[in-house]
Each structure stands twice: as C-alpha cells, then as structure tokens.
Amino acid sequence: MKCFTMMLCCGMLAAGTLANGQTVLNLYDGDVPNSKPFQLEETSNTDDNGITRVSGVTVPTLTAYFPDKGEANTGKAVIICPGGGYSILAISHEGHDVAKLLAANGVAAFVLKYRLPKDEIMVDKRIGPLQDAQRAMQVVRERADEWGILADKIGIAGFSAGGHLASTLSTHYAEALIDNPKGTSLRPDFSLLLYPVISMQPGMTHAGSRNNLLGSQPEPEDISLFSNEMRVTADTPPAFLVHAEDDNVVYIANSQAYVEALEQHGVNAKLITYPAGGHGFGLNNKTTADKWLDHFLVWLGNF
C-alpha cells in the first residue's frame, strides 16, 4: 500500500512548495504562545545508525502522512510525539518511520515537531510541549473533513518522553492552554504509548525528562500534576502501551501504573510487554520477530 506525504505549515495561509512537491506549514498561524525572544538555532543531526535527532525547536510543525488516495483509508489519524528526554527529538525512528507505516495501513499520521522545555525560550517551560500537543489536536480535528479524517477517531502517540507528552494531553485536555475560540475538543480519542515516561514520582520517573520539564528541584505540586497515572479519570482515552521488561532507562513500572489506573476507572487499556529490548527501539525490537504495530492495528480496529 502506498502513502503520500505533505508537510503542513501556516494554517490556512499560502504555503511554500519544495522541489519535491511537499508543502511546509507551521503549527501556529501567528505568534507561538508562551514564547520569549531568544536566539536559538534549530539543529538536526543523523548518526551512523540513521537516527535523526532535532534540537533547538522554536517553530513547531506538523508533518502529515496520508494513505494513498487509491488505497484503503480507515479515516483514523494519529499525532506522533517523538521522544528524547525533553532534550532532543528522535524524529526519524520515533516519528517519520512510524508515520509512514501507519499511512501504509490506512491511518493518517502527523509527526509533531514540538518545542522542548527551556527557560530561555518559554515563559513557563512546564506547559510549552503540552501547548503544542493541544494545538496539533486542534488543527487536525478542525481540518478533519478537509483531510478525509473522522473527527472522533484522532489519537495521540508518544515514545519515551514523547509518551509523557501524549499521556499528559490524554489527562490534561480539559484546560485549554492555547486560544480555542471554536471550543474544539482537545481530547484524544485513544493513545499509543511506547516505553513512556508516565510519572514524575521519585523512583519511577526518568530523571532527565523530569529535570528538563520541571527543573532539578520541582515543587511537590508539579510532581503530582505531571504524574499522569495520578490524573486518570473515567474520561481518559483508551490506551495501547508497549514496554520491554529490561528497560533500565524508563522503568516498565510507568506503563504498569498507567494501565492499572485506567483499568481502575473502567477505561480500555492494553499493555504489550517484551522480556528484552531495552529502551528506544522504535518500530523494531531486535530481540523478537513480533511486531507491536500489528497488535496495535488490531486493537485500533475496535474503535
């Protein structure tokens, strides 16, 4: 099954076209909220394994992958938040690679290049990434008809710290931190969480992610606010999680705690675990021939 790609920028404004026919569009139509003037250069580096890491994001974007017009289209969509400890974005194997495969299976996918929390560029760095996730959900839902998407079948996905962002949107959608004049629902309809940071609690959290988001000595109320296993309600979206038992970067206790909270509130939750695989394996856990995406697509078919 084929897929085609479009980079979206500048809302409803005219977009520039690259040599390969793609168009580029920023996440926000005008000023980026919660920003401070600061000279920060965005950088992108690709290592010997083909993994591309982006840092210094000040202008967040969405890159959209749609199912080919001549092929099956489920009408469902997923916004993808790459991981990187809230320090960088592992945007290739935890973003674009996943989006391409989802599109090849009839699911529209949007890779979110979100701002990373940094005091120098944000008035309140705690909420910067969440604002971008809320805006991404707002844009996709408001343009669903235009893009052939079902407005009530739009999910959020996240890897590692991106999983924290995805679960934060899933549990903090009710309070809009962006302009929302149409009152568009910012609630994801489901979530996909890969080896996610869920908790900010000592002993469970990923220290680097917590330090980057909340600071080296966070206030107790912030630890509680951003420990998403503590924010689950009966209205929290259903979730599909994947985690390796030997992950010593983000402990599997994060996924287990989130699933337990969801089940306690009667919310559909499924956790796929692997005995090995460590952290950051993206689509392919090299210790097994099993493909978690196959299981996710079956699960998603029930919605």
Rank of each mutant, 00 (worst) to 15 (best):
Y173W: 10
F159I: 12
K153F: 00
Q217F: 04
L293V: 05
I51L: 13
Y258I: 02
Y28W: 12
C9H: 15
V249M: 11
N45M: 07
I88G: 02
F190T: 06
S191P: 01
R143W: 06
G203A: 00
S224P: 00
A239E: 02
S167P: 03
P60I: 01
G282C: 03
G208F: 05
A269F: 05
S92D: 12
G21H: 14
A109S: 07
D132W: 05
Y28V: 11
S160T: 05
S199N: 03
A104G: 12
F303E: 09
R187E: 01
T273P: 04
S209I: 02
T43V: 12
A276F: 14
W147Q: 14
A151D: 14
N284M: 13
F303G: 00
A133E: 03
P33C: 01
T171W: 01
P60V: 04
N285C: 11
T168L: 06
Y195A: 04
A72E: 08
N26V: 13
N180I: 12
D124N: 12
H206Y: 05
T61M: 10
Q256I: 15
F159T: 07
A176T: 14
L89W: 06
L150Q: 15
Y195C: 03
H206N: 09
A257E: 02
D152R: 10
P188D: 08
G266W: 00
G215I: 12
L62A: 09
L177N: 06
I198T: 00
L262E: 08
S87L: 09
K100E: 13
P188L: 12
H265L: 08
S224R: 09
Y258K: 06
K270F: 05
L214A: 02
D119K: 13
K100M: 10
E175N: 15
D247E: 11
P37W: 15
F226C: 09
A19M: 08
R126K: 13
Q22P: 00
A207Q: 11
G278I: 05
K125Y: 05
C3E: 08
Y65F: 15
A109P: 07
N254D: 09
D48L: 07
E175K: 15
V123L: 06
K36S: 13
D235H: 11
I51M: 10
A234L: 04
Y195V: 10
T23Y: 01
N284S: 15
V197Y: 00
K69A: 13
G56D: 07
E94G: 08
D47I: 07
M1W: 04
A133D: 05
N228W: 09
H295V: 03
Q131I: 14
I80P: 01
L13D: 15
G215Y: 13
N212M: 11
W147T: 08
N45F: 05
Y114L: 11
Y114T: 12
P218L: 02
I80F: 03
E219D: 07
G70D: 09
Q22E: 12
L177K: 10
S170V: 01
A239F: 00
V59T: 15
V57H: 07
R126M: 04
A14F: 11
